[in-house]
Design a protein around this nucleic acid. Structure first.
Lengths: 285, 285
DNA sequence: TACTCATATGAAACTTTTTTTCATAATATG
DNA sequence: CATATTATGAAAAAAAGTTTCATATGAGTA
């Protein structure tokens, strides 16, 4: 079932004259409705209890009561997701606070990233992964670690892929790309000159480019055939810790899982072959 | 304000005879109360509407209505945190489903990890980071990527640290450790023989060992002075994607942020010196 | 234009739910 | 043992929610 606020949004067009003010109120200040009775709300929105109850039913609730409960729940969830943002880490935070806030921050960044990602683009990226002759990964600093993570995954699925640690080697690899090759360029900022150059070279040689970046309108994004966005996140308390790489890994998980799902039989066979057995039965390290 | 269920728990001792059954019900099956009216609930718990309303007020609600709303919200939150675990990815999931489920899975693993981590242990680890002559990082596969992430952070804070890519080099480094050195061994499974050997060597030379692992009772944990736990997570849909590294990174963030917070002035100065300027003003890549 | 018909709306009747009052019982206190 | 205090439920009162019904509005049609 869709969220209540979404259902309200959908209903706006079909709304009658008397419902207008009511709906307006629900959209702008839903929280102010929570403790109101039908009568009071009716008066405040210049309509009648009957109209309100009818609207509730049209929106899929059993009645005003049910409607209020649903709304309360939704508003509460929304409020919670809001307040996270204000939990900055300060110098006088205890270790306990830090554990909580850092985790929240990382969760927030995953949530935000999820909302940004468009299924269509993921599908297109997966198609590229399937059809390309080879996949080459680009990244520097923390993004290089993410690239390596994707590399390890693709290896297991027997996708032909390359990655180089130092930038010169990355650039040379980019120059060797050609049509039917795929470059995945990971750069949180989307500004790093080195990565731009790699993307440019890849493009110039006719290869396809996927960018994983927060900057959907950057120069990097311009050069890419597809951009998978990650949430823009601040540093955690200037400490240099940042959620962005966690979001990037989430994107990697999504891309890879989607890839595996479309090539299930084959991948499962490969996983069997590339499994590194641990004594205790652990699946990975 | 404390949660409602907690408040109920606190009240149990002062509860009167007639309230006993009611409270029992609220604690054991709160969700079965949500759509009941006071009358019905009174009958079912062998008490009267008056008693129920009075209890609601004692618990800090304005009345039965308010009580129900609050309870509904709490139960819903609880249920949601529960149901995530069952959202397995199946072959017929759409890309949209995958985006949602993978993210949820990663969030779940962050939440779980947060609950496992003890502030005291983090504090002790940070003290070790401060007092050690040098920090050496160990890891293989994905855990090596996490180790590298921590390495990049420590570098920026001017902590003397080492990391080697291949295992032989790691082992040699472990053999060179001595008293006052610190080894951080990252192994999700806690079973990898190579990591055990590194930990053993480090220990034998009198160095301190911190383990980041899900296996708090493994051989690796035995050898460690401190164990920072991460949530045990399944593979995402056998795809080889896993949330564990994201949890490990969360642990890295926590350790590092706690470290920075205890050495604020110094770290800020260092961050200034080690900042790699990006043209567009991005703080990192 | 006049006449359906469909739809939207609010007043009021009606039903249900919640709250309060009050009498009584149980328990504690001096 | 008398008295105060507290806990409790029946029933009255109040409030809230729902339904019914008459009317208004407007679109389509003869």
């Amino acid at each position: 079932m869709k969220g209540l606020l979404v259902r309200i949004e959908d209903y706006v067009l079909n709304a009658g004259e008397a419902e207008k003010e009511l709906i307006n109120r629900l959209q702008k200040n839903p929280e102010t409705v929570l403790h109101k009775s039908v009568k009071v709300l009716a008066k405040e929105t210049y309509t009648s209890p009957a109209t309100i109850v009818r609207l509730c039913k049209k929106l899929g609730c059993c009645g005003y009561r049910d409607f209020q409960n649903t709304l309360a729940y939704e508003v509460a969830l929304f409020r919670e997701s809001r307040e996270i943002a204000f939990q900055k880490i300060t110098q006088k935070d205890t270790v306990e606070d830090i554990i909580y806030k850092v985790t929240k921050k990382n969760i927030e960044s995953l949530e935000t990233t999820r909302k940004l990602i468009e299924p269509k683009i993921v599908t297109e990226c997966v198609k590229l992964l399937e059809s390309s002759r080879s996949v080459t990964l680009f990244g520097l600093g923390t993004s290089l670690l993410v690239a390596r993570d994707l590399y390890l995954k693709l290896l297991r699925a027997d996708v032909i892929c390359n990655i180089c640690d130092d930038w010169h080697a990355q650039l040379l690899t980019a120059r060797n790309l050609r049509k039917n090759d795929l470059a995945v360029v990971i750069s949180y900022s989307g500004l790093t000159e080195e990565m731009l150059e790699c993307a440019r070279e890849a493009k110039a040689n006719g290869a396809k480019v996927i960018a994983i970046t927060r900057a959907v309108e950057s120069k990097l994004a311009e050069k890419a055939d597809f951009v998978v966005p990650v949430a823009a996140t601040e540093l955690i308390h200037r400490s240099g810790a940042m959620s962005s790489r966690i979001s990037q890994l989430n994107v990697v998980d999504i891309l890879f899982t989607a890839y595996v799902n479309r090539n299930y039989e084959f991948c499962m066979r490969q996983f069997g072959r590339t499994h590194i057995q641990k004594k205790g039965g652990a699946e990975h390290d």
